[in-house]
Amino acid sequence: MSKFITEHAPAITLWASALCTFAVYSILYKENKFYRFFEHVFLGLATGYSFYLTWSLVMKPRWWDVMVGKGVWAWAFAAVFGSMFYFMYSKKHAWISKLIFGLFMGLSAGGIFREFYEIYFPQLGATMRPLATNEVIAEGPWATTVYVAGVLLFYVILFSVISYFFFSFEQKGKMIKASSSLGRTFLMIGFGAIFGATVMGRMTLFIGRFNFLVNNWAPQVAADWHWFKYVLPILVIAAVAGIILALKKKPVETEEPPTE
C-alpha cells in the first residue's frame, strides 16, 4: 500500500484534482450526490488540516517546544488559560469562558486607538485638498476650472455619502434629505465600480482551474491513453447536448421574471 502511494503520488494527485474540479463544477448544473460526497470530503479535510496546522505550526514551536524543550515552565499557565474556553460546556460555570472571551475582546478593543490613527488619519490628511494651487492657476483659467470642479465634486460626494449614514437626525430638512438621497446615488456608482472591477479577478480564478486541466491534467491523460484526444471532443459535445436536452424537457423552475 505504502509503496503504491509513494510510486504513484503525482498521478493520484493529478487525477484527484481533476475529479474534485468536476465534482464542484457539477453544482452549476444541479445539486447531486457526487457534489454532496465531495462537500463532506472537503469538510473533513479542512477540519483535519487546520487541526494539524494549528499544532505543528503554532502550538508546537511557540508553546510546547519553548516550555518543554527550553524549560520555560511558566508557559504551563497558557494551558490553564486555554482550558477556560471549555467552561462554556458547563451550565453552571459558563461564566469562566466569558472571562477569557472578555480578555480577548478587551485586547482587540484596546488596539482601536492605534488602528484609528494608523488607518484613518492619513485618510483624513489625503482628504484635505487645496481648493486651488498656484501651479494650477498659472496654467490658465480653464485648467483652474477643471481642477476646482474636480475637488468640489469630490467633496460633494464625500459629504453627501457621509450624510446618508447619519442615523439620528430626522431627515426632514430639505437640505439633509436631498444630500442623503444624493449620497445614495453616489453609493450606487461606487458599488457599480466595485462590481465592474471585481469581474476580472473572478474570471481569472476560472482561468486558473482551466489552466490546470489543460496544462497539467490533459497532457497526462493523453500520454496514458492515446485514444483520449479523440474521445474528449465527443465527451464535450455529449455533455453540451445532454444539458440542452435536459433543458428542453423541463422548463427550469428558477428564474422568476423580475419583480418591480
Partner: peptide, 12 residues
C-alpha cells in the same frame, strides 16, 4: 490533490 483543488474550484 483534494483540498486545494476543492478550495480553488469552489472559489472559482
Amino acid at each position: 490533490g483534494f483540498m486545494n483543488s476543492l478550495q480553488s474550484t469552489t472559489f472559482s
